[in-house]
Simulated scan of single mutants.
Amino acid sequence: MIDARRRRGVLGGLLVLFLVTLAWSATIGGVPIPVSDVFRAVFAKVGLSADVDATTASVLFGIRAPRLVLGVLVGAALAMSGAALQGLFRNALADPALLGISSGAALGAVSAIVLGASIASALPAWLAPYLLPTIAFVGAMASMVVVQRIARDGFRTAVSMLLLAGIAINALCQATMGLLVYTATDAQLRNITFWNLGSLGGATWGAVWSAGPFLVIALVALPRFARSLDAIVLGEAEAGHLGFSVERVKRVVFAIVALAVGASVAVSGILGFVGLVVPHLLRLALGPSHRTLIVAAGLCGASLLLLADAFARTVVAPAELPLGIVTAAIGTPFFLALLLREKRTRTA
């Protein structure tokens, strides 16, 4: 058993890591900003100190800050979604990207890019920015429902069928996106490339305000299901005997995860393995309790994506490496190691 003191220590360490990563990420880029100027600019923004250099303030609040905010929200949402799915399916391999949810959200986003112009023109001006994340959410939700229905065997979810269904849905979404790419204009093709590779390069305050509310809802809602997920890990029948409505919990958690993934893909494209790597490592350090696991996953996921984004925008400067390539480079070896570990466990 992992005692409460160790959990508090890990959570405290993750909080410090997050704050340090956030401050450090604000200092690096095409225009380096000393950390002292970052704090001075923040204090000036809230009226606690004198004004700072106009160029520093413009770079920090106009370009870097929305990117950092989206990185925090998207990283936390993907990691917390992965933790919830792994608890719900009682399997460490469950992940929004592997289960086809991210591809479904990307298909919705690409559909909005190619086909959504006429719909947006019919909407009020204040609703138009929410069209893309809304359609991405619908695509994510549809993919999750299909995968879950295919993998369902009576009262049990077959893990092998779950992964196979996710592969099939990924392939179907990719084929459909290929058809949309075939009919897209040159301008639309440039936008579609963004979804395939993943990036925070298009981060603006408009993107924050359009996707942020969806992401914040997911971040606030998922920890509330910690006790339900702890009960489901024991078995669905056991959770029912403890008084939890298992099917209701599954429906609501599915909807929240789809909301988080849809909004994340809408602003950052597909970023694989964040929801797989982070929860699995934290489960080894913190144990299976979702009360601390989900919160810790949010902090660690935000830190990981900030670090990956900092690497993506500096390693080949002044160009920018797609963020999806960085997360895949981190996650793929880990996933293969996890599969080999499962293989050794079964053959032992």
Rank of each mutant, 00 (worst) to 15 (best):
I2Q: 09
D3Y: 07
A4R: 15
G9S: 11
G9R: 11
V10S: 05
L11V: 14
G12T: 10
G13D: 10
L14C: 05
L15Q: 09
V16F: 15
V16H: 09
F18C: 06
V20I: 14
T21P: 02
I28D: 06
G30Y: 13
G30D: 11
I33P: 00
V35Y: 09
V35W: 12
S36V: 15
S36T: 15
V38Y: 00
A41G: 01
A41D: 00
A41H: 00
F43C: 11
K45R: 15
K45I: 00
K45H: 14
T55F: 13
F61I: 00
L68S: 05
L73H: 05
G75D: 00
A79W: 00
G82M: 03
A84M: 06
A84V: 02
L88C: 02
A92D: 14
A94Y: 01
P96C: 04
A97K: 02
L98F: 04
S103V: 01
S111Q: 09
L115Q: 05
L123I: 10
P124C: 11
P124Y: 11
Y130P: 09
G139C: 04
D153S: 14
T157V: 15
V159Q: 06
S160E: 13
I167S: 12
I167D: 03
I169D: 06
I169Y: 00
Q174F: 12
L179I: 15
L179N: 11
A184W: 07
T185V: 08
T185I: 08
Q188V: 06
Q188F: 10
L189F: 12
R190Q: 15
I192D: 06
G198A: 10
S199F: 03
L200Y: 08
A203D: 07
W205V: 09
G206Y: 08
A211I: 08
G212C: 08
I217H: 04
I217L: 15
L222P: 00
R227I: 12
L229D: 00
D230G: 09
A231L: 10
I232G: 06
L234Y: 09
A237P: 06
E238V: 15
H241F: 12
L242V: 06
F244Y: 13
S245Y: 10
R248G: 08
R251H: 12
V253Q: 01
A255E: 02
L259N: 03
V265F: 04
A266V: 04
F273E: 08
L276M: 06
P279D: 02
P279N: 02
P279T: 03
G287Q: 10
G287A: 10
H290C: 07
H290W: 05
A296M: 05
A296Y: 06
S303W: 03
L305E: 07
A308T: 04
D309K: 05
V315I: 15
V316N: 11
E320W: 09
I325C: 05
T327R: 03
I330G: 04
G331P: 07
P333G: 07
F334V: 05
F335K: 04
A337C: 13
L338S: 07
L340E: 11
E342M: 15
R344Y: 12
R344H: 13
A348I: 14
A348Y: 12
A348S: 13
